[in-house]
């Protein structure tokens, strides 16, 4: 076995991953929190008022990063589900299932804040247009994956079934992303672009990107925290988990 494969197997083994993740989780949450506070300060205080939407546009600083995270978390989930289905790697099953509730949370925030933004700007809380509907479908896909995972008794079978659903649902990702170009919609087009100049002032874009970074770091903190719990559940019969359970019980008594 070469060094890389060895490293891969070691890191992927539940007790090792559990330990490494335990070190990383507080850092992710901490960095995410600090970046989030800086981003919110930038968005709510430092950034100037929009010439057209006034202060209502400030919802963008939570709405857009959460929307990106909804898609990113789905991609992360589907990629891990693919690895889990093809190579039967336990850790990937757990990682995929750990990202579902986080993605659902971000998608839920996106829908609610979008609604709160739509009411003053469009004059309606909700409309059945392409972007909004496909985003709602994204939330239902997350809920479907979580429900299927919870409904099957055997953890590994459950992860495989739910992972399969996650893979099928990936067809919705381009629909969400391109919906504003493919159909006439009330929702505005992309403001921030990776290729070509963004259609937003630098004073507004730095808080937006800071919030995006904050939510990404937060996501990984949460994925790792949930994966730790998932590994304990999966390896419940193993010695290393029993030791942790008894040690924690002793500390509580």
């Amino acid at each position: 076995m070469n060094a890389l494969t060895l490293w891969f197997h070691k890191t992927g083994s539940p007790p090792t991953f559990y330990r490494i993740a335990g070190v990383l989780v507080p850092w992710c949450y901490g960095i995410g929190l600090v970046l989030g506070l800086v981003g919110l300060y930038g968005g709510l205080v430092a950034a100037p008022r929009d010439y057209q939407q006034g202060d209502a546009y400030r919802i963008i600083f939570v709405h857009v990063p959460c929307a990106w995270m909804g898609l990113f978390a789905y991609f992360f989930m589907a990629a891990n589900a693919f690895v889990a289905l093809v190579w039967r790697i336990k850790l990937s099953e757990i990682l995929a299932m750990a990202s579902a509730p986080i993605g659902a949370a971000f998608t839920f925030i996106t829908l609610v804040t979008g609604s709160l933004w739509g009411k003053p700007m469009w004059g309606t809380w909700w409309t059945w247009d392409a972007r909004l509907t496909s985003e709602l479908v994204l939330l239902f896909l997350y809920l479907g994956v979580m429900g299927l995972y919870a409904a099957i008794e055997d953890r590994r079978q459950a992860a495989r079934a739910a992972g399969f659903l996650a893979l099928i649902g990936i067809v919705n990702l381009p629909i969400v992303h391109f919906s504003v170009n493919w159909w006439n919609t009330l929702h505005q087009g992309s403001t921030v672009r990776l290729i070509g100049p963004s259609k937003i002032d630098p004073a507004m874009i730095w808080p937006l990107l800071t919030m995006a970074l904050a939510t990404h770091v937060w996501f990984f903190g949460s994925v790792l925290a949930r994966t730790r719990t998932g590994l304990l559940e999966l390896d419940a019969g193993k010695d290393w988990v029993r030791r942790i359970a008894l040690a924690e019980g002793a500390r509580r008594d």
Binding site: D55, A56, R58, I59, V62, A105, I109, V112, T113
Partner: peptide, 18 residues
Amino acid sequence: MGGYGAYVWTSIAVFLVV
């Protein structure tokens, strides 16, 4: 928030609470 306080602050609150 220029008259949009209820919408902006509710959004922030939803974000933080969730």
